[in-house]
């Protein structure tokens, strides 16, 4: 097999070649995953905040369920979304199967519980600090949730990043609902799976390196944005 230095070379060469196809795949990966994470945050953060603020019968069970769903197997999510979106399924009329939208839906399902569970954890800690003050101020549940999310935004960005990491790296769900169609639903991970199945392990690994670099870049960007925002807030 090819040695690692030549694979790095291959990865660099791919990026440098300005290969339009590669960039389209990278762009689609980012578009699908970032949208899924945005939806995951839209749903997961309020859900996590709600669980941090409100006690109700069955609270423990819901939390446990959410924690368990952090480990949802992507293939299972892919299958369920496939069954929903398939022409034979309840949402078949929408014709969403084998589109980026289907992939976004699957990934959103995958990351929402993760983001919600992590948000609940960190917002519960914050709520422990704020609880008496909130009570004394007589705040509504909604204002409490909003205040927690706003004040906890830096630690919540970690939850969002965890969601991003899970989504950008998964192949099981997107390959089932996206179909890995060239130019339409092929993303980095499905391209890697394809090259692996073609036995082109070097190319697959080179793509893997590019994917990891991408993921690293997004993480670094968010963290440094975070740090700048924090510094400005503390200035």
């Amino acid at each position: 097999m090819t040695d690692f230095s030549s694979i790095f070379g291959l990865a660099l060469g791919l990026v440098a070649s300005g290969d339009g196809e590669l960039y389209a795949i990278i762009a689609l990966s980012l578009r699908v995953t970032l949208t899924a994470v945005a939806i995951g945050c839209l749903v997961g953060l309020p859900l996590g905040a709600f669980l941090a603020v409100v006690r109700f019968p069955g609270h423990g069970a819901v939390t446990a369920l959410l924690n368990a769903f952090m480990g949802l197997p992507p293939v299972v999510v892919g299958l369920v979304v496939y069954l929903l979106l398939s022409r034979a399924g309840p949402l078949g009329v929408l014709g969403l199967l084998y589109t980026p939208t289907a992939m976004i839906i699957a990934q959103a399902v995958l990351v929402t519980p993760l983001i919600a569970a992590l948000a609940r954890q960190s917002l519960s800690d914050l709520h422990g600090e704020y609880d008496e003050l909130f009570q004394s101020l007589g705040l509504s549940t909604r204002r409490k949730m909003a205040a927690l999310i706003w004040d906890g935004r830096y630690s919540l960005s970690t939850a969002a990043l965890a969601g991003f990491g899970r989504a950008i790296a998964e192949v099981g769900a997107v390959i089932i609902v996206g179909g890995n169609i060239e130019h339409v639903t092929r993303v980095m991970t499905t391209a890697i799976a394809l090259e692996t199945s073609k036995g082109d392990l070097a190319l697959a690994l080179a793509l893997g390196i590019i994917l990891m670099t991408l993921s690293l870049a997004v993480n670094a960007a968010v963290l440094s944005l975070n740090r700048t925002a924090r510094r400005l807030a503390y200035a």
Binding site: R31, T35, I39, L42, V43, I104, H183
Partner: peptide
């Protein structure tokens, strides 16, 4: 609130589709 949320999700999906390549 849930209506707002749904609107947000729809907006996200629409935004994402808007970026789709013209080849469609």
């Amino acid at each position: 609130m849930s209506r707002k949320l749904l609107a947000g999700i729809a907006a996200a999906l629409v935004l994402a589709s808007a970026g789709a390549p013209a080849r469609a």
